Simulated scan of single mutants.
Amino acid sequence: MKWIFLACFLISNIVFGQKIYWAENVKLNWNNFKSKINNQRGANVVAYTNCGWIYSYVKSSNPKAPIKIEIQTVFNEDKSWKDVKRINDYVLLHEQKHFDAAEVYARKLRKEVAEKIKTSSDFDRYFKAIYNRNLKEYQDFQRTYDGETKNGMLEDKQSEYNRIIAEGLEKYKSY
């Protein structure tokens, strides 16, 4: 029986251990970047953070029944890459901010979902559109963030985005 438990524990660790869920006290480190493939294919890319959201819900077949929706921000270790010859703490901070920005947009999504989706019927009617709009805003932000900071190389722009992201985390902290 002990062996079965140990085997299940090790397998679940392998399967589920490749995601880091965003938490204020959890910061990324270079060991979290486990992909061997630079899927960005750019010679100037020093690291790549693969992060976003996952959601789950419990709903009833009764359209008026309350619904429970959970949205989490995740960092995917097996899809995040680093160039071990060029990494440093400054680049790691830039990558952390990608993860933090994902949490800002997850909080915005949680807020809108909490305000507009109360029942199973609301979920069926509104969730997909709310999710897709928030996802587009999040993706646009991430592209703009990399573009304006030149992937973190422009220190003044990086500082500006550090502030913007910190303000977003604070503004939506109750979500």
Rank of each mutant, 00 (worst) to 15 (best):
G52N: 09
G52K: 12
G52T: 10
W53H: 10
I54P: 00
Y55L: 08
V58W: 10
V58Y: 14
S60H: 07
S60R: 04
S61W: 13
K64F: 14
P66A: 05
P66N: 12
K68V: 15
I69F: 08
I71T: 02
T73W: 02
V74R: 11
V74D: 04
V74G: 00
F75E: 01
N76D: 12
N76P: 00
S80W: 01
K82R: 10
D83G: 06
V84D: 10
K85L: 07
K85S: 11
K85H: 12
I87V: 15
N88L: 07
N88D: 15
D89C: 01
Y90M: 04
Y90K: 07
V91S: 07
L92A: 00
L92G: 00
L92F: 04
H94I: 01
H94S: 01
E95Y: 06
Q96S: 03
A102L: 08
A102V: 02
E103G: 01
V104M: 02
Y105F: 15
R107W: 06
K108Q: 15
L109Q: 05
L109T: 01
L109C: 07
K111D: 02
K111W: 07
E112R: 14
V113R: 04
A114R: 09
E115C: 00
K116Q: 15
I117W: 12
I117G: 03
K118R: 14
S120E: 08
S121Q: 13
S121K: 10
D122V: 04
D122M: 05
F123N: 06
D124Y: 06
R125T: 09
R125F: 11
F127H: 03
F127V: 03
K128Q: 15
A129W: 15
A129G: 10
A129D: 15
A129N: 13
N132C: 05
N132E: 15
N132V: 05
N132M: 13
L135H: 10
L135E: 09
E137V: 08
Y138D: 02
Q139Y: 15
D140W: 13
F141E: 03
F141R: 00
Q142W: 08
R143S: 14
Y145K: 01
Y145R: 04
G147C: 01
E148F: 11
E148C: 03
E148W: 07
E148P: 02
G152N: 05
G152C: 04
G152A: 04
M153G: 07
E155L: 12
E155V: 13
D156Q: 12
Q158N: 09
S159D: 08
S159T: 06
E160T: 09
E160I: 11
R163V: 10
I164L: 15
I164G: 02
A166D: 12
A166Q: 11
G168C: 06
G168L: 05
L169K: 02
E170I: 06
E170H: 09
E170D: 11
K171Y: 13
Y172C: 00
K173G: 00
K173R: 13
